[in-house]
Simulated scan of single mutants.
Amino acid sequence: MTFVRLALCAAAPLLFAAPAQAAPASITGNWKTDDGKSIIQFYKCGTSMCGKISKFLVPEPAGGARDTENPNKAKRNQRLLGLRIFWNLKASGTKFKGNGYSPEDGRNFNAQVWREGNKLKVKGCVVVFCRTATFTKA
């Protein structure tokens, strides 16, 4: 009887241990935005992941699309093509969490990015207001 108790005590931590979290699926590559207007390229940058606008799928205005909604007036003339809009995305459980920027309204947001099969889910939150978009492989 003592041996059974000893064996149960030894095995208890294994039975009640939290399951190990798998690393999130890779988000590296080119993804078409849910509105179909652009391609976002996710890539490794240092120890995290970043994302930039790599291509427009709609015609740009003459001289190229600019970051006209940027709250920093000095940056309103920068081109959107090539602009980094996701940064500091670090693996956290099954998602990447970090920062994002929306050139459509000039807002920074807390970003979560994760794979669901051949789709990429992108969740952005400003304070308590969140929106999730679904990108497709480009």
Results as ranks from 00 to 15, higher is better:
127 V>N: 01
102 S>G: 08
70 N>C: 02
24 P>T: 03
111 A>I: 01
104 E>F: 06
87 W>I: 00
25 A>I: 06
23 A>E: 09
33 T>F: 00
44 K>C: 09
60 E>I: 10
95 K>F: 01
47 T>Y: 09
134 T>Q: 08
52 K>H: 11
7 A>S: 13
60 E>L: 02
37 K>F: 03
103 P>T: 05
73 K>E: 12
54 S>E: 13
82 G>N: 04
79 R>F: 11
8 L>C: 12
131 R>H: 13
117 G>E: 13
89 L>D: 00
132 T>S: 08
114 W>I: 05
73 K>N: 03
136 T>R: 04
19 P>S: 11
9 C>Q: 08
14 L>E: 00
135 F>P: 01
15 L>N: 09
2 T>F: 10
17 A>L: 12
83 L>R: 00
39 I>L: 14
53 I>F: 14
54 S>Q: 05
104 E>T: 07
9 C>I: 14
17 A>E: 07
103 P>N: 04
78 Q>V: 11
124 G>W: 01
28 T>E: 14
33 T>L: 04
57 L>G: 00
17 A>W: 10
112 Q>A: 14
3 F>K: 08
70 N>M: 06
62 A>R: 04
105 D>R: 13
70 N>D: 06
127 V>K: 07
28 T>W: 14
93 G>W: 13
15 L>T: 12
109 F>G: 02
3 F>Q: 15
76 R>M: 02
42 F>V: 07
58 V>M: 01
67 D>E: 09
22 A>V: 08
81 L>P: 11
13 P>Y: 09
5 R>S: 15
84 R>P: 10
55 K>V: 03
106 G>I: 02
109 F>V: 02
134 T>V: 11
12 A>S: 13
47 T>K: 13
103 P>M: 14
136 T>M: 03
41 Q>W: 12
49 M>T: 05
123 K>W: 06
68 T>I: 06
12 A>I: 10
29 G>Y: 05
64 G>M: 11
75 K>Y: 11
35 D>N: 12
48 S>V: 05
89 L>E: 11
5 R>C: 04
30 N>H: 14
101 Y>T: 02
38 S>M: 07
126 V>N: 02
2 T>L: 07
83 L>N: 14
50 C>G: 10
109 F>I: 06
65 A>H: 10
120 L>G: 08
74 A>M: 05
23 A>N: 07
1 M>I: 01
132 T>N: 07
128 V>F: 15
24 P>A: 10
10 A>E: 04
66 R>M: 12
60 E>Y: 15
93 G>I: 13
18 A>D: 14
105 D>T: 13
31 W>N: 02
63 G>Q: 06
134 T>F: 15
75 K>G: 01
68 T>N: 06
72 N>Q: 07
